[in-house]
């Protein structure tokens, strides 16, 4: 066998034997998941519209005009019609996206940070501390999430900040539970024991060995909560416990526009459609992520 032959045989080794890393596998799965990609694009569009609202909204979202109240879709420059105070619906929907995304994302991020940390500590330390943290969480579990959000908001009063706090409190217990369960599963595995035997501190073990293993299930679950948060915040605004009027907010818009449902039913349905599309998009993207990140597949 000549050198040339050897070179040819070496070069002909199948590429398949290259081992793809975890994130590479996730990326590849996502690349071929067209449903997830489509709804990810929808979310990106909503995010872009929300960020660029001052530039792309055709009118001031709070500018009222009784002469133009409750106009239909396509009326003059009001492409999506006007609301009960004659405000441009398209502009309010674009600006409303900001509030919905804020109310959808911030409580989940806050709850992930707090609930995840508490869950990891409870799972890693165990014993009485675990009992204290998890039983406290169980108290919150006793109430349905909608009821709990309404109760907390009702107690603290309406407004955006109180709404954010209420929703964060609603999401902390389930995220804590997920993190605690995942931590309990890994804390006695060999690599953790090995790290402990090597003299690593608890903090260091949590940071370098536990969090990495807990992060995936927590993030997957957290992503599924974004759509719930969007819906709950819309519900709070609908009940008057959310943002302060006349802030453009889809839930609040839906609440006030329902009075005009017999006059302009399509215009009245628009905020509901926006809530539905956003919530559906986050839900399906979360599903796609869960599928892509599942190590058992």
């Amino acid at each position: 066998m000549t050198d040339a032959t050897l070179r040819v045989e070496f070069a002909a080794q199948p590429a398949a034997i290259r081992v793809r890393g975890y994130w590479g596998t996730v990326g590849r799965r996502l690349r071929y998941d067209y449903v997830t990609l489509f709804f990810l694009a929808v979310i990106l569009m909503i995010v872009f519209a929300a960020i660029a609202a001052p530039l792309i909204a055709p009118f001031d979202p709070n500018k009222t005009s009784m002469a133009f109240r409750l106009k239909p879709i396509g009326f003059r420059d009001f492409r999506l019609g006007t609301d009960e105070l004659g405000r441009d619906m398209l502009s309010r929907l674009i600006w409303g996206g900001r509030m919905s995304l804020l109310m959808g994302l911030v409580p989940v991020v806050v709850a992930t940070a707090i609930g995840g940390t508490l869950g990891v500590i409870a799972g890693f330390v165990g014993g009485k501390l675990n009992m204290l943290i998890m039983r406290t969480m169980d108290i919150f579990y006793a109430f349905p999430s909608v009821l709990l959000a309404i109760a907390i908001s009702g107690m603290m009063g309406g407004g955006m900040y109180n709404g954010l706090i209420a929703l964060s409190m609603v999401f902390i217990p389930p995220l804590c539970r997920i993190a605690e369960t995942a931590t309990t599963q890994v804390r006695h595995l060999d690599f953790v024991e090995a790290a402990r035997a090597s003299g690593a501190s608890s903090g260091s073990i949590i940071l370098h060995h536990v969090v990495g293993n807990v992060l995936a299930p927590v993030l997957i679950y957290a992503s599924s909560l974004i759509s719930v948060s969007v819906l709950l915040s819309a519900g709070l605004s609908f009940l008057g416990l959310g943002v302060e009027p006349p802030t453009p907010d889809w839930g609040l818009m839906l609440s006030t526009l329902r009075q005009a449902i017999y006059v302009q039913p399509l215009v009245c349905a628009l905020p509901g459609a926006a809530i539905f599309i956003t919530s559906l998009s986050f839900n399906l993207v979360s599903d796609g992520l869960r599928h892509a990140m599942d190590v058992r597949i």
Binding site: N62, L85, P245, P246, S255, Q259
Partner: peptide, 10 residues
């Protein structure tokens, strides 16, 4: 109350 208050505010 809601639309009326919104108009008053504006």
């Amino acid at each position: 109350p809601l639309p009326m208050n919104e108009l008053v505010k504006a």
